[in-house]
Design a binder for these strands. Structure first.
Lengths: 188, 188
DNA sequence: ACCTGAACACCGTTCAAGT
DNA sequence: ACCTGAACACCGTTCAAGT
């Protein structure tokens, strides 16, 4: 399988560069969207373009590095919500959070999903975490009779993503779409 | 307002070029997706890149020219369905068609929506047509009590778009998402 | 080993010259 | 008026030289 053979340690200066690049990339993506020139990232991180490409062979890998942490936080939140709220509410809240995440991100959500669908290396682990989190919430909600049986965890993520990207330009519609979707999720 | 002052007639050879470019662009976009090099389009249409840019100052305008007809057909279908089916069914069918349109298009749907949101000149008219078609179907369905009152025509288009782009890579999920959405649309 | 930055390739865009 | 295609600018990517 294409599993990483040995995640060999990094030399101190290499690690420093790696981390500065990720940090700078986050800023640049926020300022200029996910299509911002990678040369700008390299320049602002004070490294040559070659260094950037050594660490991140393509744009998707850099995006992965930047947003991995956010996605893992999203997975963690699922378990938090599961502890604090009843199953139906927990799932509802989580979907709300996911839509919020997709919103206001200047086309980033779409790029993120594309990268995850294409199995960008850097996403392998956090993709699993997200899937497991979704499965946990959905199963609990189904067992509690809060949502219908004929949806899969994946469906919920897709819906949240769809609503997020669709309403990116008109966030006021997001709430109405969520309402419809949540009503549709109730046992019919 | 920024309305076109006079859509001056085109010389015969200019019109020929214009139409060949649109035709070729449709093929190229289908083959290589909506990011295909415009130079390829120009080359295959046997015109210089300058000619292409004269007619279509940017990629979005070319995309508009290519898909305008499809979108107007989509609007026409709405009225067809409204005649042949009862209001609820007509709306359902139309949403299904819209999702199908967004599907299998290699990221085109997202580009299309972006272009329409940004009000690309070429879309001005067919955008209105689509909005009117959606308004007609939604009003009829609401008057018939087939769907809830608290959704707007725009919401339905956004949902269809969202489902389409979200399930582009996994079309089998589209059906399940549509079911949830349609159930959520019923008067609660 | 890793970094650097010049060099290359590609593609969108412009514009002077031609018809 | 419109078309042509060379030229330019921009940006992703590679690689030889340096540390």
């Amino acid at each position: 399988m294409g599993s990483t053979p040995t995640p060999r340690p990094m030399r101190a200066d290499a690690r420093r560069n790696y981390e500065r690049i990720v940090e700078v990339a986050r800023e640049v993506f926020r300022e200029h969207g996910p299509e911002a020139p990678l040369d700008d990232v390299a320049r602002r991180a004070c490294v040559g373009p070659g260094t950037l490409y050594r660490h991140f062979p393509n744009r998707e890998e850099l995006i992965a590095a930047v947003y991995r942490a956010d996605l893992e936080a999203l997975a963690d939140q699922a378990y938090d919500l599961a502890e604090r709220l009843e199953p139906g509410e927990a799932l509802t809240e989580w979907l709300r959070v996911q839509v919020g995440f997709a919103l206001h991100k200047r086309g980033l959500a779409a790029k993120l999903k594309a990268a995850m669908d294409r199995d960008a290396e850097g996403f392998a682990l956090c993709k699993t975490k997200l899937n497991e989190a979704a499965a946990t919430l959905v199963k609990a909600a189904q067992d509690a009779g809060a949502i219908r049986q004929d949806v899969r965890p994946r469906d919920l993520q897709l819906m949240a993503h769809g609503i997020g990207v669709a309403t990116e330009a008109t966030p006021d519609a997001a709430e109405r779409l969520l309402t419809v979707m949540l009503d549709g999720l109730r046992p019919q």
